[in-house]
Nucleic acid binder design. Structure first.
Length: 856
RNA sequence: GGUCGCAUAGCUCAGCUGGUUAGAGCGCCUGCCUCACAUGCAGGAGGUCCCUGGUUCGAGUCCAGGUGCGACCACCA
């Protein structure tokens, strides 16, 4: 070994991740391990498409967890020799990015309208050039083995082509259409948003009762509403057809207060006779239900709130220009003046808010583009029903299916500038609509009348482009080598919040356009909450920055911690688990120092002769089998815990302590075993803790290349040895009991006690590790611990021994009582499995024997 | 309103198809700076497994009801 490196190994007793991580990552990148050739078939290869983070984003805990899981599987499969590709890229994130840049411009005192569309979009691109790669660099800090040379962006030229191809095909099929429809208008982003981008929140409002006089009568119909300002757009009043109170009024009219409009009184099933007075004002322009009712009854659709979120001229000059809140006050005042307000009471209900801007959704009718989903959903339902796409944990399969079976048209247009501008051209002269094959070469003049064409102003929903991520990133619609080698991808890990928004849509588009499901497995991971159980969120200030955690504890520690704390249920962020990961890295480094600095130079297969060697080699194989199976089934927490327990408890606490004398003597067999165990342990841990394992590996005498591409251990069945396991475990158990006994009777830690053994002698290590000389003779034993008879000594306090004995006797008596009771139960003896009963009898015997030993 | 999930040690969580004395990490207590590691080693204390019924020889685990949280979906003004 290079003297400088040897010195480092000898002198460094604390593992320092910050020194190691960037260096190692550079080595991997330079070697090109993460940039596989587009060869082989999807069946033999392994591929994953990263859920593309927003270009505006910074790495948060969700990314870190998701990335740790993906990287663990990608690395394991790369080590297995599979051609492995982890596709990386970012999402242009329409609303989020546009508002970031708008905010920046605002600070400069400019609005996007001052700049105009073209200039504004240019500015966003400039912003993206400067800041857009930040999150990609952050993934490197995590150790993510993505293909950084194949980075994609949803607005790359090739990607845009794919988006347009999809749009065109869906349009030609008639799935995409334009319609005046009620949409979720987000006054914050000045755009329509889809149902999935709306979240409902409980809000306390006032429920107003308003009297609508019935035409030609002195009766009034009292309606209840939380949004009196929308009455200005009322076009009917509805009652339930079975409601006897109003049967005679159906077909008549009432008069809209303040406005004076005649409103037909209609009957509709939707109205709940139990609610309020059983009469419902109908505002098709500003309420989704009313819109449906309006369409059923052919009602007039009036819109009084404009895209700017303020009341329009339609609302009448008294109210035009007001915000809805101002208008509410004004309308209520006016109603009160007219004597039409007959009640108000507090009312709590759920109200839609924009997930993007946080503002209250203003439902209104506007002209938007929609995509019909039924036809696309059908095969995507089948694919999941038949498990061509397996969703785990299993309960999410049903959630997916339930949603897909009730899928509704998707509003895909957004009134933004940043995004894929909808590839549709209109001719105002002859009212034709064109969707060209190649938008880049779109005609300038109308094919029918020669009139001037103008392109649709709106852009597509960001999720429209992310929906095709798994194949568009591989070059679709061209028939590329990447597509042939890596599609379908192997699996997807995701947070459940984007199961519909993203996962479902990828399955639909994958089947429709790429001819196959986009992935075979979907693993829905848990959500890591803040330490106090709240959501991690920037606005709440509850977020924990993964980069800070990496700075302090190292990427390996964070990765281990996140995987260890992950679960099928949501969990609170656990500093202790990250700490555990850090300690593990340190322990790995130090155990490796012990081995590497003391092992004789041997290049041999393990030697399974002595029972402790047979034991640890068997345990190693069992651990490899178990950890591998857990990783393959996305059970990261147990994989991490088992690898940890094996390495720490069995390998370090026991095996290393047992074999130290042999190691120091330079025995070759134990050196061979230790180097073999170290190699396999490092490889097994590498998918979880890539940096420290790679660093340690760099000192291993068997090293011929990086661990990142070293073979992943497979199980050597010949090393399984249940007998050796049982035998050594008995020795460990006895050692533990002897140590506990010593501590209990307060023997000084250093003093060696003498004892003799009844019957077969235990393994050599038992006496050594418990500081007992087991070859004593003569004298009466003062205590018995299993087969060990402890002899009197100046270090042993007789009183403490008596107390200890008393305590043990009590424990045993209670166990004897329990076992006796169980065996006295005839039904247990008769009906429980025979071996269970036998076991219970044996136990009872043991307890009784020990009790007798203790002088009972 | 519908669906799903969760309640186990002081804390954060494991406990598969019901079966040893219910586990881990952290924290706590007691010893140890033992020549890999004090980011360490050894030992220990600590649990009416939310409540009530039920099924069973046997229930943390299965069933019913209840209580308390949480998530998702949903057009009742």
């Amino acid at each position: 070994m290079d003297p400088a490196r040897l010195k480092k190994l000898e002198e460094t007793t604390r593992y320092d991740p910050s020194e190691v991580e960037s260096r190692i990552f550079g080595e991997w990148m330079e070697a090109g391990y993460f940039h596989p050739a587009a060869e082989g078939s999807p069946e033999e290869n392994f591929s994953v498409a990263i859920p593309p983070p927003n270009v505006t984003g910074a790495l948060h805990m969700g990314h870190a967890l998701n990335g740790s899981m993906q990287d663990a599987l990608v690395r394991m499969n790369r080590m297995r020799g599979k051609n492995s590709l982890w596709i990386l890229g970012t999402d242009h994130a329409g609303i989020a990015t546009q508002s970031v840049v708008e905010k920046k411009l605002k600070a400069e005192g400019v609005s996007r309208h001052d700049l105009g569309r073209e200039e504004f979009v240019k500015r966003v691109w400039e912003w993206r050039e400067e800041y857009g790669s930040r999150i990609v660099e952050q993934y490197k800090r995590l150790g993510a083995s993505c293909d950084y040379e194949r980075e994609r962006f949803t607005l790359d030229e090739a990607y845009v082509r794919a988006v347009y191809r999809v749009f065109k095909q869906l349009y030609d099929k008639g799935y995409i259409y334009r319609d005046n429809y009620i949409v979720n208008w987000d006054p914050g982003s000045h755009s329509a948003i889809s149902d999935l981008e709306v979240e409902n929140r409980e809000v306390e409002d006032t429920l107003f009762s308003i009297d609508y006089p019935v035409e030609g009568s002195d009766r009034v119909l009292t309606v209840a509403t939380v949004r009196p300002e929308t009455m200005l757009a009322d076009t009917a009043v509805a009652v339930n057809p079975t409601d006897e109170r109003y049967g005679d009024l159906v077909g008549q009219h009432c008069i809209l207060p303040l406005v004076g409009r005649r409103l037909p009184i209609i009957a509709d099933e939707h109205v709940d006779p139990e609610f309020g007075t059983g009469a419902l004002k109908i505002t098709p322009g500003h309420d989704p239900n009313d819109f449906e009712i309006g369409r059923r009854h052919g009602l007039e659709e009036i819109v009084v709130i404009g895209p700017d979120g303020r009341l329009t001229e339609e609302a009448g000059e008294r109210f035009a220009g007001m915000t809805p809140a101002e208008a509410q006050v004004a309308v209520v005042d006016a109603l009160r003046e007219e004597g039409a307000l007959s009640g108000e009471e507090p009312y709590t209900h759920s109200v839609p808010f924009s997930h993007r801007s946080g503002e209250r959704i203003e439902p209104l009718i506007s002209l938007q583009w929609f995509c019909r989903m039924d036809e696309l959903a059908a095969p995507a339902i089948e694919a999941v029903e038949s498990d061509r796409v397996k969703i785990a944990p299993a309960q999410w399969k049903r959630v997916y299916l339930d949603w897909m079976r009730e899928i509704r048209p998707w509003c895909i247009s957004r009134q933004l500038w940043w995004g894929h501008r909808i590839p549709v051209w209109y001719c105002d002269a002859c009212e034709e609509t064109f969707v060209p094959e190649d938008p880049a070469a779109a005609p300038e003049r109308c094919g029918s009348c020669g009139g001037e064409l103008r392109q649709e102003e709106d852009v597509l929903d960001t999720w429209f482009s992310s929906a095709i991520w798994p194949f568009a990133t591989l070059g679709w619609p061209d028939d590329t080598p990447e597509l042939r080698a890596f599609y379908p991808t192997s699996f997807l890990t995701t947070a459940r919040e984007i199961l519909f928004l993203w996962v479902a849509r990828m399955i639909m588009t994958g089947l429709e356009f790429a001819g196959d499901v986009p992935f075979h497995d979907v693993y829905v991971h848990s959500v890591i909450q803040a330490r106090d159980g709240r959501r991690m969120s920037k606005s709440l200030g509850t977020g924990i920055d993964p980069l800070e955690e990496i700075d302090v504890h190292g990427a390996d520690a964070l990765r281990f911690g996140l995987l260890a704390m992950s679960s099928t249920q949501d969990v609170r962020y656990s500093d202790a688990k990250v700490q555990q990961g850090r300690d593990l890295a340190n322990k790995l480094w130090n155990a490796s120092r012990l081995i590497l600095l003391n092992a004789a130079a041997v290049e041999a297969e393990p030697v399974a002769e002595r029972v402790e060697d047979r034991w640890i080699l068997s345990r190693m194989e069992q651990t490899i089998a178990s950890v591998t199976a857990k990783l393959d089934s996305y059970d990261f927490a147990h994989a991490a815990a088992e690898a940890y327990a094996f390495f720490w408890s069995e390998l370090c606490d026991w095996y290393l302590e047992i074999v130290k004398p042999r190691l120091y003597e330079g025995e070759e067999a134990v050196s061979a075993n230790l180097l073999w165990l170290l190699e396999r342990t490092l490889a097994l841990l590498h998918p979880i803790m890539p940096f420290v394992s790679e660093e340690v590996w760099s000192y291993h005498p068997s090293r011929s290349g990086h661990l990142a591409v070293h073979g992943f251990p497979t199980v050597e069945g010949r090393l399984f040895d249940p007998e050796a396991e049982a035998e050594v475990e008995r020795g460990i158990e006895l050692t533990r009991r002897l140590r506990a006994w010593r501590d209990m009777v307060e023997v000084p830690a250093r003093s060696e006690l003498t004892a003799r053994v009844e019957g077969e002698a235990p393994h050599e290590f038992v006496g050594r590790l418990s500081r007992f000389a087991l070859d004593g003779n003569g004298g009466d034993p003062i205590a018995a611990v299993g087969p060990v008879r402890v002899l009197a000594s100046a270090d042993i306090d007789a009183e403490a021994v008596a107390t200890r004995l008393q305590k043990r006797r009590e424990e045993l008596r209670s166990e004897v009582t329990r076992a006796e009771g169980k065996l006295a139960n005839e039904k247990f003896v008769a009906r429980a499995p025979a071996e269970l009963v036998e076991e219970e009898r044996a136990k009872l015997e043991r307890y009784r024997a020990e009790l007798e030993e203790l002088g009972e």
